[in-house]
């Protein structure tokens, strides 16, 4: 049993009880700060209809490029639309894009890593060579290349960013599975006649979850950044959608006259990504004390 625990430790897998892990997460200041801020952003996104006074799409050209005031907390944009409303609604879009992209990457990459790690052999060779090939392109460039052929749209950005992050998940899942696979309880389940599917779902995946959770949190931050960058380049969300990257792109020409149209959407992206990075770093420290960021 001691060797099992040692193997789990070297694999970066917790042998602690759920309560111990939670206590460690709650004691980690970075994780808690990130989680609280992220919760505030998520709540703002969910209740956007209730916390904004102005419609994010309604134009008022007589009121364009107004600096922040009591009526328009963050001012108005080049079409006189309320910046605060647009940024709050933008949180909805960015979080959705992040979650869906990471969901795609997690599902596809996780499955590839799981099968490669569990079965090994030719399946592993094929999957991992494919991962190597995808890794030969920096993920943002891969996403850019994919979206350039699929055409500019938010849906295509989610698909492209999702594909671009597949290799990261495939690698993390494979190494976690490789470590778990040789442990005694998997051998015991095999000896007891459990099917491969059952072993994978009941024994392997739950014990490989920690590194995947950390990877997912940090990827969420990167996916939101990448999606906003693609929209900034005009390849993602199209006007008048209140997406942060796209807002920055269309406001670019006004930086000389009204910098607030550029400052606030960028700050929104940065704060959201910062929260996710804080949470990811904190979770990594808490779930695996070997990694210190």
């Amino acid at each position: 049993m001691a060797s099992t625990m040692e193997a789990q430790r070297t694999a970066g897998l917790g042998v602690d009880t759920r309560g111990q892990i939670w206590r460690r997460i709650l004691r980690n200041r970075k994780a808690v700060a990130g989680a609280i801020l992220l919760a505030v952003i998520a709540l703002a996104a969910i209740f956007a209809d209730y916390i904004t006074v102005h419609d994010p799409y309604t134009q008022n050209l007589r009121n364009r490029l107004q600096p922040p005031s009591s009526d328009h907390w963050l001012g108005t944009d080049q079409f006189g639309r309320d910046m605060f409303s647009r940024i709050v609604y933008g949180a909805r879009i960015s979080l959705r894009v992040g979650f869906i992209s990471v969901g795609i990457a997690l599902l596809a990459g996780g499955t590839m890593g799981l099968l490669a790690g569990y079965y090994g052999g030719w399946l592993e060779t094929i999957f991992m060579r494919l991962v190597d090939i995808l890794l030969a392109l920096p993920s943002f460039l891969l996403a850019l290349a994919i979206v350039s052929t699929l055409g500019p749209s938010l849906t295509n950005v989610m698909i492209a960013v999702g594909i671009a992050y597949i290799p990261a998940f495939a690698r993390v899942m494979r190494s976690a599975v490789l470590a778990v696979r040789q442990l005694d309880y998997v051998t015991a389940a095999l000896a007891a006649g459990a099917s491969d599917l059952r072993i994978m779902v009941r024994h392997v995946v739950p014990n490989a979850l920690n590194p995947i959770i950390v990877q997912a949190t940090l990827s969420l931050a990167n996916a939101i950044l990448a999606a906003a960058a693609l929209s900034f380049l005009g390849m993602g969300a199209q006007p008048p959608t209140p997406e942060w990257g796209s807002m920055l792109n269309s406001a670019r020409s006004f930086i000389r006259t009204a910098h607030h149209v550029v400052t606030y959407p960028g700050l929104a992206i940065m704060i959201t990504v910062l929260c996710l990075n804080l949470l990811g770093d904190g979770l990594r420290d808490a779930l695996d004390p070997r990694w210190k960021g």
Binding site: V262, G266, N277
Partner: peptide
């Protein structure tokens, strides 16, 4: 450093 990795490149350039 954390802010540096969280900042969107395009926004930083514009700022």
């Amino acid at each position: 450093a954390l802010a540096g990795v969280s900042m969107p490149v395009f926004w930083q350039g514009l700022m």
